[in-house]
C-alpha cells in the first residue's frame, strides 16, 4: 500500500510538474526567438549587446521594440491561458473561454472607450481600468446567467451575444471618435495584435495580470470542489460565492489587462487547457498554472510564426489564434455532442 501511495504521488506530481517545466522552457524559447527576429536584420550578439548597454540602433530596437513585444506575448498568453482554465473550471464547461464568452471583446470595448474618448489623458491607467471593467461586466453577466440555471450551451450562446454586442459597440465607438484610422484600428482591437507596443505597456500589464492569475490560483481548491456540484462543494467547507468572486475578478483583471495591451485575442484559453488535460489531468486547480504557462508559449509561438509568414506586420495575432482555435472549437463541440 505504501508503494502504491508513493507511486501515485510521484506519478501525479511527475506528469503535471514535467509538463509545466517543458512548457516554461518552450515559452522562454519562443519568446527568445521572437526577440531575435524582426524587420530589422540584426544579429543575436548585436541585439543582446544592445539590450544590456542600450547604445545605438540595436540598443533602441532591443530595448524598446523587441523586448516589450516578446514579454507582452508571454504576459498576454499567460493571462488568456490561465483565465480559460479557470472559467472552464467555474462553469464546469470545456467550451468556456474569455474569447468565446465575450469577455475579451468587452475588455476591448473598454480599452477603445478609454483611448478614443480621452480618458487616457487623465491617467494612463484609464486604459487597463476600463478594459478590466469591460471584462468584469461580461464575466458578471455570465455569472448571473449561470446562477439562474443556464446550462453549458446557453452560456456559450450568451457569450456569443455579448461578444457581438461588444464588437458592434467597439465599431460604433471608433466611428464616433474623430480618427482617420478608425477602420484599421477597429480591426486591430477586434483581432488583437502585439505591434508597436512599448515598455510602458509591460509595466502596467505585468502586475495586473500577475494579480489576476494569483486570484485564480487562490480559487483552485474551490473549483476542484465544484466538480461535485455546488451543494457538495459547500458541504466540503468551500465558500462557493467567494470562489466565484475570485474567478470573476481574477479573469477580469488578467484578461482585461491583456486585452488593454493586445486587443481581443481569442481561443488561447480554449485550446491550451484542452491540450494540457492529457498531461495534467482534469482537476481544475492543477490546470490553472500549466495553462497560464502554456498560453504564454502558444502566444509567443503564434507571434513568431506571424512574423515569419508576414514580416511586414500585416497579419494580426488574433488571425493566427482564430485560425487555429476556431476549427478546434468546432471539433470540440462535435466531440462533446457525441458524448452526450
Amino acid at each position: 500500500m505504501d508503494d502504491t501511495l508513493a507511486a501515485h504521488r510521484i506519478r501525479n506530481m511527475g506528469d503535471g510538474g514535467r509538463a509545466t517545466l517543458v512548457l516554461a522552457c518552450l515559452a522562454l524559447a519562443f519568446a527568445g526567438w521572437s526577440f531575435l527576429i524582426g524587420p530589422m536584420d540584426l544579429s543575436a550578439p548585436a541585439l543582446f549587446a544592445g539590450l544590456f548597454d542600450g547604445h545605438g540602433a540595436a540598443g533602441t530596437i532591443a530595448r524598446e521594440i523587441r523586448l516589450p513585444r516578446a514579454l507582452l506575448a508571454l504576459i498576454v498568453g499567460a493571462a488568456l491561458g490561465g483565465s480559460g482554465a479557470a472559467l472552464q473550471g467555474l462553469f464546469c464547461n470545456p467550451l468556456a473561454e474569455p474569447g468565446v464568452t465575450g469577455v475579451t471583446s468587452s475588455a476591448s470595448l473598454g480599452a477603445v472607450i478609454a483611448l478614443y474618448f480621452g480618458f487616457v489623458s487623465f491617467s494612463p491607467l484609464a486604459l487597463p481600468v476600463l478594459a478590466i471593467l469591460g471584462a468584469l461586466a461580461a464575466a458578471g453577466i455570465l455569472y448571473i446567467l449561470s446562477q439562474r440555471g443556464a446550462g453549458a450551451v446557453a452560456l456559450i450562446l450568451a457569450g456569443v451575444a455579448i461578444a457581438s454586442f461588444a464588437t458592434a459597440m467597439t465599431a460604433l465607438a471608433l466611428s464616433y471618435a474623430a480618427n482617420p484610422y478608425a477602420m484599421s484600428e477597429i480591426v486591430t482591437w477586434m483581432l488583437g495584435s502585439l505591434k508597436d507596443r512599448t515598455f510602458d505597456d509591460v509595466t502596467y500589464a505585468l502586475p495586473l495580470v500577475a494579480a489576476g492569475l494569483a486570484l485564480l490560483m487562490l480559487a483552485g481548491r474551490g473549483l476542484d470542489a465544484l466538480t461535485l456540484g455546488e451543494d457538495a462543494a459547500r458541504s466540503l467547507g468551500v465558500d462557493v460565492a467567494r470562489t466565484r468572486g475570485l474567478v470573476i475578478v481574477g479573469v477580469a483583471l488578467a484578461t482585461g489587462a491583456a486585452t488593454a495591451v493586445a486587443g481581443a485575442v481569442s481561443f488561447v484559453g480554449l485550446v491550451v487547457p484542452h491540450l494540457l488535460r492529457p498531461f495534467c489531468g482534469y482537476r481544475p486547480a492543477r490546470l490553472i498554472l500549466p495553462s497560464a504557462i502554456g498560453g504564454a508559449a502558444l502566444v509567443a509561438a503564434a507571434d513568431d510564426v506571424l512574423r515569419l509568414v508576414a514580416p511586414d506586420g500585416q497579419l494580426l495575432l488574433g488571425v493566427a489564434t482564430a485560425m487555429l482555435g476556431a476549427p478546434f472549437f468546432l471539433w470540440l463541440i462535435v466531440k462533446l455532442g457525441g458524448e452526450r
Partner: peptide, 24 residues
C-alpha cells in the same frame, strides 16, 4: 453529504474524486 445527482462534472480518475472528500 452525498447530494442527489452528484455526478462529477469532469472525468477525473476515481481516486481523485474520492480525494475531494479530504478537502476539509
Amino acid at each position: 453529504y452525498l447530494p442527489q445527482g452528484g455526478e462529477p462534472r469532469w472525468p477525473l480518475p476515481a481516486r481523485e474524486v474520492v480525494m475531494l472528500g479530504r478537502l476539509p
